[in-house]
Simulated scan of single mutants.
Amino acid sequence: MIRVAIDAMGGDLGPRIAFQATEKIVAAFTDVEAHFYFDPQEFDFPAESPSSRIIPVACHDSVSSMEVVDRSLFKRVDSTIYRSLADMSKAKADVVVTFGNTAAMVALARHIVGLLRPKLYPALIREMRPNPLRCLVDLGANVHCAAEMLNGFALLGASYVEARSDSEANVALLNVGVETSKGSSVIKECYQMLSEQAWPKFSGFAEGFELFSGEKNVIVCDGMVGNAVLKASEGLFMFLLSQLPKHSMDTSAIEKLVQAESRHGACLVGIKGNLVKGHGRSDLQAMMGAIEYGIDIARTNLYKRIETKLTQQGVL
């Protein structure tokens, strides 16, 4: 039985939509047990649960998406995100899925679950395309990044790709051009680091148009750039879908293509557990997609496979 801990608080649409997504997931997957972490002040859990495989976990605190993270976060032991991560650290859950505050999630994951290696900073990875697998890392877990951190993202991203597919990782740093003379001092320093390492395969710089196609399947950047790139891409897609019908153009083919290629949610890699972050603005379908992704990585215990890969390469 796959045990999914769902932090129902923090999403823009509230816990009611998260509960609906949970109902549908449990109905679709007979080998899944959902532990539903909620705040009774915000959501009335049904007196009669629709399924014995939806386990209510009432918490009396939650971290909103607008909150600024400070040291007091580590004392909020009855918040939904804290308790879900604590239960995973105690092997009571196989994966945590949250739609809440990213900064709180990262800080508590580091504090409660722990890092695979000190100073190997955890990063959010998003699958840009599934077949062949290609990923973007980081998406917002880290904003101000030194060259050593970017190098760590490359190692985590390469491990993710090789743990999730049969492909060899081919890493590139996102930059304003592919020429070695371009980029910031941080990017150039990381370029030198990756060039001197035996693993992973490093192909220099990548430009924005290489995110969705080409041989470079792990694109590395700092969290601010990655988050902006991802949301700009998603925003352009939504804009096109809204505008094309005005010109009598059928968008069904585009919608099917994106549905087949997209992956809802991002995986926080570099911690000793499986953790998925969904968009705060996720609707029902997006929440279901993020939970399905969590189930997918829990089935193979992805963090352990990444840990094994890093150990084999002498990183851990």
Rank of each mutant, 00 (worst) to 15 (best):
1 M>A: 10
2 I>H: 03
4 V>L: 15
9 M>H: 10
11 G>T: 04
12 D>V: 08
12 D>S: 07
20 Q>A: 15
23 E>M: 13
28 A>L: 06
29 F>T: 02
30 T>W: 06
35 H>Y: 13
37 Y>P: 02
40 P>Y: 10
41 Q>E: 15
41 Q>M: 12
45 F>S: 11
48 E>Q: 14
48 E>D: 08
50 P>V: 09
51 S>W: 07
52 S>T: 15
55 I>V: 15
63 V>K: 11
75 K>G: 12
76 R>V: 07
76 R>W: 09
76 R>I: 11
80 T>S: 03
82 Y>H: 05
93 A>G: 11
93 A>Q: 06
94 D>L: 10
95 V>M: 10
96 V>D: 01
100 G>P: 03
101 N>R: 07
102 T>S: 05
111 H>W: 10
111 H>Q: 11
113 V>Q: 00
113 V>D: 00
114 G>I: 14
117 R>T: 09
120 L>T: 08
124 L>E: 03
124 L>S: 02
124 L>V: 04
128 M>K: 15
132 P>W: 07
133 L>R: 11
133 L>D: 05
134 R>S: 11
135 C>Q: 01
146 A>H: 09
147 A>R: 02
148 E>Y: 09
150 L>V: 01
156 L>C: 06
157 G>I: 00
158 A>P: 04
160 Y>F: 14
161 V>I: 12
165 S>R: 04
168 E>V: 09
174 L>G: 00
176 V>D: 08
180 T>F: 09
181 S>H: 05
184 S>D: 04
187 I>M: 07
191 Y>P: 01
191 Y>S: 00
193 M>F: 13
199 W>R: 03
208 G>C: 14
208 G>I: 12
209 F>S: 14
211 L>T: 13
211 L>C: 11
211 L>R: 09
217 N>V: 07
219 I>G: 02
220 V>G: 00
221 C>H: 00
221 C>V: 00
221 C>S: 01
223 G>A: 02
228 A>M: 15
236 L>Q: 10
237 F>C: 08
240 L>P: 01
243 Q>A: 14
246 K>C: 11
246 K>S: 12
246 K>N: 12
247 H>L: 12
248 S>R: 14
250 D>S: 03
256 K>T: 07
258 V>Q: 13
264 H>N: 14
265 G>W: 04
268 L>I: 04
269 V>T: 12
270 G>R: 13
271 I>E: 02
272 K>R: 15
284 L>S: 05
284 L>K: 03
287 M>F: 00
290 A>K: 00
292 E>V: 11
293 Y>N: 14
294 G>V: 10
295 I>T: 08
296 D>W: 09
299 R>T: 11
306 I>P: 01
308 T>D: 13
309 K>M: 15
312 Q>D: 14
312 Q>L: 12
313 Q>R: 07
314 G>H: 09
315 V>M: 03
316 L>F: 13
